[in-house]
């Protein structure tokens, strides 16, 4: 599985949404599932998928599909 596939799967699992919804342009609050409760599930799923522990500044900065890819570079994860 590629990192992109793992990333998409983490989004789908964390937000409890279909994989087809996970794509560029997906942002916090753009779907009902991505609220503060969904955000916790999302970050937990991303951490588990890449075996990392994100700083809280990065957790609150993860506001979109694209922003997550940018943040993961800090943890040496290339999508």
């Amino acid at each position: 599985m590629t990192n992109l596939e793992k990333y998409i799967e983490a989004f789908a699992e964390g937000l409890e949404i279909d994989k087809s919804v996970v794509k560029e342009g997906l942002e916090y609050q753009s779907i009902p599932e991505w609220d503060s409760v969904g955000h916790m599930g999302l970050v937990a799923a991303i951490e588990d998928a890449f075996d990392i522990m994100m700083d809280t500044d990065d957790i609150i900065d993860l506001s979109s599909f694209e922003k997550g890819i940018e943040i993961l570079k800090k943890y040496e994860v290339e999508i």
């Binding site: 609220d35 409760v37 955000h39 970050v43 609150i60």
Partner: peptide, 9 residues
């Protein structure tokens, strides 16, 4: 500043 950050939880 902290809207849409998840801190609402």
């Amino acid at each position: 500043k902290y809207r849409n950050t998840g801190l609402g939880i």
